[in-house]
Amino acid sequence: MDVFMKGLSKAKEGVVAAAEKTKQGVAEAAGKTKEGVLYVGSKTKEGVVHGVATVAEKTKEQVTNVGGAVVTGVTAVAQKTVEGAGSIAAATGFVKKDQLGKNEEGAPQEGILEDMPVDPDNEAYEMPSEEGYQDYEPEA
């Protein structure tokens, strides 16, 4: 019985440690998101679009440190934060509304985080759909 109880105690310690790591990862992701939003706020009209992409990228980098179902929630929060940063930029006159959601080359930025393969159960990952990809044929 002692062996059984000791095993359960060790398992509990492992769960607590994993929860603490997840909590730490979420806190880091939130900190990076805040950094990115402050970065966007300090940019001029020309830099705002690039700044919004930076927020998304920093958040995406930190999301990889967070495991399990938390990833889905962090990704949703990050996307809403990026959308909010863009709205703030438009409201303050840093950028025109028609410039939001495009990178410096004018290509749409939507789907940055949505296409990231995420499995809350950590069982399997699927690649994003290939609808947006084109076949590449090298020139002879």
Rank of each mutant, 00 (worst) to 15 (best):
T59L: 05
V74K: 03
V37D: 00
A107K: 03
V16S: 14
E126I: 04
E35S: 14
K21E: 01
F94S: 01
T72D: 10
T33A: 10
G106V: 07
M116L: 06
G67D: 02
T75R: 05
D115H: 08
L100I: 04
G31I: 13
E130I: 06
T22M: 08
K34G: 03
V66M: 05
V37G: 07
K60R: 01
T22Y: 00
A56D: 02
E61H: 04
A124P: 02
M1P: 00
E57Y: 15
D115Y: 07
K96W: 06
E110M: 11
N122I: 05
E114S: 14
P138M: 06
E13A: 05
Q62D: 02
V52G: 00
E104I: 07
G93H: 06
T72G: 10
F4V: 01
V3P: 00
E35D: 08
A56C: 09
V66Y: 12
P128M: 05
A89T: 11
I112M: 02
V95F: 12
V66A: 11
V15H: 01
V16P: 01
T75G: 08
V49S: 14
M1C: 00
V82P: 01
T33L: 11
V118N: 14
V82W: 15
L38D: 05
D121H: 07
Q24C: 02
Q109C: 13
T75W: 14
L38T: 15
V118A: 15
S9Q: 12
P108G: 12
G132P: 03
A91G: 04
G68V: 13
Y39K: 11
K96S: 13
F4C: 07
V63G: 06
G67Y: 14
M5H: 00
A107R: 10
P128D: 11
G36Y: 09
Y39N: 15
M5V: 06
M127E: 14
T44D: 00
K23A: 12
E131V: 10
G67R: 12
F4G: 00
V70R: 00
E28Q: 06
T22A: 01
A53D: 15
E123A: 01
G36H: 04
T22H: 05
I112E: 09
V70E: 15
E131N: 05
G101D: 06
E110I: 06
E83D: 05
V48Y: 09
G68C: 11
E104H: 07
S87H: 10
E130S: 14
M1W: 00
G73I: 03
A18K: 04
Y133I: 07
A17Q: 06
G31F: 15
A85I: 11
N103S: 06
G86Y: 11
V71E: 01
L100K: 01
V40Y: 05
K45T: 07
E110N: 15
G67N: 05
V63C: 11
M127H: 04
K58F: 06
K10Y: 11
G86L: 08
V48F: 11
V63S: 02
T72H: 09
V49R: 08
G7W: 05
A69G: 08
M127I: 10
Y136L: 10
K23V: 03
G25E: 06
E126P: 10
T44F: 12
G132T: 06
A27W: 12
Y133M: 06
S42R: 05
E61F: 05
S129V: 11
V16E: 13
A85G: 04
D121L: 01
E57W: 11
V82E: 02
A19I: 06
